[in-house]
Computed example of a mutant assay.
Amino acid sequence: MRFSGFPVRRTARLCGGGLVLAIVTALTGCSSLWGGGGSKPVPADLGANVAVLGVRQAWTARVGGLAGMPMEVHSAGSVVTLASADGVVAAIDARTGGDVWRTSLGEPLSAGLGADGNTAAVVSRANVLVVLDAGRERWRHSLGAQVFTPPLVAGGRVFVLSADRSVSAFDAASGRKLWTQQRPGEALVLRQAGVLRPVGDTLVVGLSGRLVGLNPDNGSVRWEAPLASPRGTNDVERLVELVGRTSREGDSICARAFQASVGCVNPVRGTVSWTQPASGAEGIHGDAEAVFGTESNGAVIAWRRVDGSRLWATDRLKYRKLTAPLLLGRSVVVGDDTGLVHLLSRTDGAPLNRLSTDGSGIGAAPVVAGDTLVVVTRNGNIFGFRPD
């Protein structure tokens, strides 16, 4: 069976209930990712914006706010589908910014949305999987644990990765559970979207610091490839998670291990091609030539896909909290926590343009739908940008 999906990403929560013990929130101290217990360093002034690449705002739309929910935006053709923390689910025409359909579930959500262009799936904070068809509820199913990773809708099935490290498959039409794969769970997991995506006829899942290839028909393990290993002496220090988005090109899938490494795996053989140390909390993106990522200190780095050697790094956005990147043509697109969208040269990281939104911070990794760059802010405003 071969099934298709869409590239994936949202941010880590390490403080204020961001680490969860299977289902129960763990109470833990938290030191600054910037180093030490002082205030966050002030980002450098960006200077005047010199628009080397012409881009204009084409439209705006709105969904609900994020309120801490790990947000994912899915694109299929010219339609983007997304959900808000308060349970609004919408499909937006990226050509106009108008609704294709919109519905309110009337209950808060814990994870972003998964979709395949027809079917959409979300998970509520009450641990209920809800599946929609063109905005109309098709079925729902109670789950045994919290979910922070958007469900995957592919091949006529809905796949769910839960916080207890279980993976379940459901028939998308009927809601019948097909199988569950349960793995031993570490004490802590991130309240952040992980890795769950199709690669050819294999379901690829991030479990702890490993990419794991599962048979989508029955959940059996085909291969495991470690990208990071636990370190340290306590549960917090030993936390290892893979975070989306990922980058897949041919026989190469690349992913980030939270605050540990970036690496690529051959999903046919299930072998690790390379890993490099990296201190980021967001997913990556790329193409056949390069892989791009943002570090927790605001640096943006490019690695050569074939061997992981560093191509370039820039600290122009240092001390800004950045989203996972989107490689779009000649640009690497990232959003920051002030609501700015930065277009950097894929060749050397030089600035190409800077776009403004509503100032509330970019809440999800940018996506492209047709010829439109789509970004969503923490306040739930959606912006469509197009080249001049």
Rank of each mutant, 00 (worst) to 15 (best):
A85K: 05
A369R: 09
L326W: 13
S39I: 14
W139Y: 14
G37M: 10
R245G: 15
D348K: 10
G349I: 02
D336G: 05
G36I: 10
T25I: 08
R9F: 14
L82S: 13
E295F: 11
G77F: 00
A260T: 13
A154K: 06
R183P: 07
R222K: 14
R95A: 03
G263S: 01
S142Q: 09
P184K: 02
G18L: 07
N215H: 14
A22V: 14
A126E: 15
L178C: 03
D348C: 10
E241H: 12
G64Q: 02
S356K: 10
G144F: 06
L311D: 13
V376I: 07
H74M: 10
D235L: 11
D86C: 02
G232M: 04
E241V: 06
V131C: 08
S4H: 08
D235G: 04
V80R: 01
G37P: 09
L46Y: 14
D86S: 12
A290K: 13
L343Q: 09
V89Y: 06
A121F: 08
V24F: 11
P70C: 06
P366V: 03
A58F: 05
G335C: 08
V24L: 14
V367R: 05
L242R: 04
V195E: 01
D164K: 05
G47F: 08
L109K: 02
S124G: 14
L327A: 11
I362A: 01
A365V: 09
D45K: 06
R197C: 12
S331P: 08
G206I: 00
G29N: 13
G36E: 12
S124N: 09
D217M: 07
V189C: 08
V52D: 13
V375E: 00
D315H: 02
A278H: 10
S110Q: 12
L82H: 09
W274C: 10
L178I: 04
L27R: 12
V291W: 04
V291S: 04
A12C: 09
V122R: 05
G64H: 02
F6W: 12
V130M: 04
A51D: 14
V63Q: 02
M1L: 11
L328A: 15
T357V: 09
S309G: 15
L343R: 04
